[in-house]
């Protein structure tokens, strides 16, 4: 018996939508579940004090500071390198063997699991370079990890800048560097920022790599050469060792809210970029 196409059409489209809605449902559930269980415990005291007895009590201030340090430093290191790579690929060279090699490197780097980055950071930064478990080791490791994201988004943003701007700028007697800094990067800035902001998010979420490089010291970090536990790792330890469920939920809420804000701002930046360039 042959099922009429119109029936298949309705069934198939219905199924696709159902699966999509299921996916969105999972997302909503995750956010709602964490926030519902965690937000009541997120108090000012929780945000502004240090943990006590391994996190069973007290707050998460050192972890917030540690996360910001690690993520901020990682992006601070990675962004100039990533943007420079994108500028080189788009403005300073033609497609060829060289660009293929650079792209291959970035693509492979993007596929490497974070635990491998952790292993590498551990043996290279903490041991070989002697940085020890420290914010700096963690940040350097994460900087390499987010580099492909920054390269890719910057490259796309730069390519979206109209070619005619290059004609105009050169026509007005600018050098290539003047064109890049004053026209291209200026126009591509919102797009580049999107990649940078998403990289901050990825750095804050990351656990495996920072566990093996930044360590898990509970104290308040006073310099980048100190070990510091990040929020994500703290959440992992709290929940895994069953130290304090309320504190675990509260920490997860802070993470979720941070990620929500980061994704929202990345989205807003992208919209601005699209509106401006296209």
């Amino acid at each position: 018996m042959r099922i009429p196409p119109a029936v298949t059409q309705r069934a198939a489209v219905g199924l696709m939508w159902a699966l999509t809605i299921l996916t969105l449902g999972v997302l909503l559930f995750i956010i709602a579940f964490i926030l519902a269980n965690g937000l009541p415990h997120v108090t000012w005291t929780f945000l502004s004090t240090s943990p006590e007895s391994m996190g069973r009590a007290g707050g998460v201030l050192p972890m917030i500071v540690g996360s910001l340090w690690v993520a901020g430093l990682a992006v601070l290191i990675s962004a100039p390198v990533g943007v420079a790579t994108a500028v080189y690929l788009t403005e300073y060279t033609r497609e060829g063997r060289l660009t293929a090699v650079i792209r291959f490197g970035a693509d492979c780097l993007a596929g490497i699991p974070s635990i491998i980055f952790g292993l590498f950071g551990f043996v290279f930064f903490t041991i070989t370079l002697g940085l020890g478990f420290s914010i700096l080791s963690g940040a350097l490791t994460l900087a390499i990890m987010v580099l492909p994201t920054i390269i890719r988004t910057s490259e796309e943003a730069i390519r979206a800048v109209p070619k005619s701007y290059r004609d105009v700028s050169y026509g007005l007697g600018s050098t290539r560097w003047q064109l890049v800094t004053r026209v291209v990067l200026r126009s591509a800035l919102p797009g580049i920022s999107t990649g940078v902001v998403l990289s901050v998010g990825r750095s804050i979420s990351e656990t495996a790599a920072v566990m093996l490089t930044a360590g898990s010291a509970l104290g308040f970090p006073h310099s980048v050469f100190q070990s510091s536990r990040t929020l994500a790792l703290h959440f992992y330890v709290l929940s895994r060792e069953g130290l304090s469920m309320p504190n675990a939920y509260a920490t997860a809420s802070i993470l979720i809210i941070a990620i929500l804000l980061i994704n929202l701002s990345a989205y807003a930046l992208m919209r601005r970029f699209v509106a401006k360039v296209v």
């Binding site: 420079a84 790579t85 080189y88 300073y92 780097l109 490497i112 560097w177």
Partner: peptide, 26 residues
């Protein structure tokens, strides 16, 4: 301009260099 070109090229190779160093150390 020449100097800028060289610096950018070196930075552009950092991704592939990182990949190489990671592979080597692991």
């Amino acid at each position: 301009e020449k100097a800028i070109h060289v610096v950018l090229m070196l930075l552009a190779f950092s991704a592939i260099a990182a990949l190489a160093v990671i592979t080597a150390f692991i």
